[in-house]
Amino acid sequence: MAQHNELGKKGEQLAIDFLIEKGYTIVERNYRYQKAEIDIIAQKEEVLAVIEVKTRSTDYFGNPEEFVNPKKIKLLTLAMDNYVTEKDVDVEVRFDIIAITKITADFKIEHIKDAFLFF
Score class of each variant (00 low, 15 high):
I16L: 13
F95M: 06
N30L: 10
N69H: 14
V91N: 12
N30Q: 13
Q13S: 12
K87V: 02
F118Q: 15
H4T: 14
H4V: 13
R32H: 13
R29H: 10
T101S: 07
V84S: 01
M80N: 01
V50P: 01
A15I: 05
I109E: 01
L19R: 02
E12D: 10
I38D: 02
A15F: 06
V68T: 02
E66G: 10
E92S: 09
T25C: 09
V68M: 06
K102E: 11
I98N: 00
I20W: 10
Y83F: 14
L76N: 00
E45P: 04
L76W: 03
A99R: 03
Q34P: 03
K102L: 11
F95H: 02
T85N: 11
V27A: 01
V68P: 03
L78M: 15
I112E: 00
S57L: 11
T101N: 07
I41G: 01
K9C: 08
F67P: 02
F61I: 15
I40G: 02
S57A: 14
A115P: 04
F61G: 09
R94K: 13
F67Y: 12
E86I: 10
I38F: 03
A115K: 01
N82R: 13
E21V: 07
I73S: 01
G62S: 04
L7G: 04
A105I: 14
I16T: 08
K35N: 13
R94M: 13
F107S: 04
D81C: 11
L7E: 08
F107T: 02
K54L: 05
F107Q: 04
S57N: 14
L75M: 14
E46T: 06
F18S: 07
T55D: 05
Y83T: 00
L7Y: 11
L7T: 03
E110L: 13
E92K: 11
I40P: 03
H111Q: 06
K44T: 02
L14A: 06
F107N: 04
G8V: 06
G8H: 09
T85E: 14
K72G: 07
E92T: 12
